[in-house]
Design a protein around this nucleic acid. Structure first.
Ligand SMILES: [Mn+2]
Ligand SMILES: [Mn+2]
Ligand SMILES: [Zn+2]
Ligand SMILES: [Zn+2]
Lengths: 128, 128
DNA sequence: CGCATTATCGCAACTAAGTTGCAATAATAC
DNA sequence: GTATTATTGCAACTTAGTTGCGATAATGCG
């Protein structure tokens, strides 16, 4: 079980994920809410939100933990295992909508559960 | 520039990558060579080996840094950006030989440079 | 070989991300 | 309004990786 009481801190963290579609690093939230809440509070809220399948997590290029909002997940089942992409230049992380392409990666060699891509995003590519 | 002097420490670390094909975490090497060399020595050797395109690196599921041997890379050019797969159960990491599948992941949306997959490996799948 | 040069190493101290135990605070239910 | 207990802040800790510096050893040359 995750979130039980709807506290102000919980709402503030959740609002960040409603405000924008991209993924957010735990690290960013810690510094963003630096003078509003303690970092352990933030990590604990993120844990609980993930437990409830409200957000999902993964590790980015520099080993930091990233979170993004789940779209079609219930508390009981987590279907939201779409690929993620992180730009090496601007470090932004995007959730990629599910395509049927990704299942082709496997040659019956593994059971693939998550896909993480890195490279250069559109915006950074056009400005260099 | 990376490796200049071929020391015993350098040889020992390199041997680990010759001995086996799978990727090795920096962390594993630190504990494996615990009473033979200092951890900073290991990290520095790995840095230099990567500089020389003898090994390549990436970040695994738990945010640890992993290294594996480069196959067709010269000091000047690094072509070895094949996908990597880490098993969630046994934590082993494998380099996946390049297929043409992976290029299909992109829909002209990004320039994909690396692919990291997680899931269940063959061996773990058959024993559960 | 013997020596000078300097890359490499060990050590200890540090950084940065994330975790944990515990006492204080505040959300909820009655 | 009060009791219950989930949540929070704090401080201390853990773990992976980095850094500065003096000591060591690989290399090249006479
Ligand atoms: Mn996502
Ligand atoms: Mn590889
Ligand atoms: Zn970008
Ligand atoms: Zn496995």
């Amino acid at each position: 079980m995750g979130i039980i009481r709807k506290t102000k801190h919980f709402q503030k963290v959740l609002d960040q994920f409603s405000k924008q579609e991209n993924a957010i690093s735990a690290n960013y939230l810690v510094s963003h809410f630096n003078d509003e809440m303690n970092k352990s509070t933030i990590y604990r809220i993120l844990d609980k939100l993930e437990d409830d399948n409200i957000i999902h997590s993964f590790v980015g290029v520099h080993g930091l933990k990233w979170y993004a909002k789940c779209l079609d997940c219930t508390v009981k089942e987590h279907n939201d295992n779409h690929p993620h992409f992180q730009c090496e230049k601007c470090n932004e992380v995007q959730c990629i909508s599910q395509t049927n392409n990704e299942s082709k990666i496997i040659d019956a060699q593994f059971l693939v559960k998550s896909v993480f891509l890195t490279g250069i995003c559109n915006r950074c590519f056009s400005t260099c």
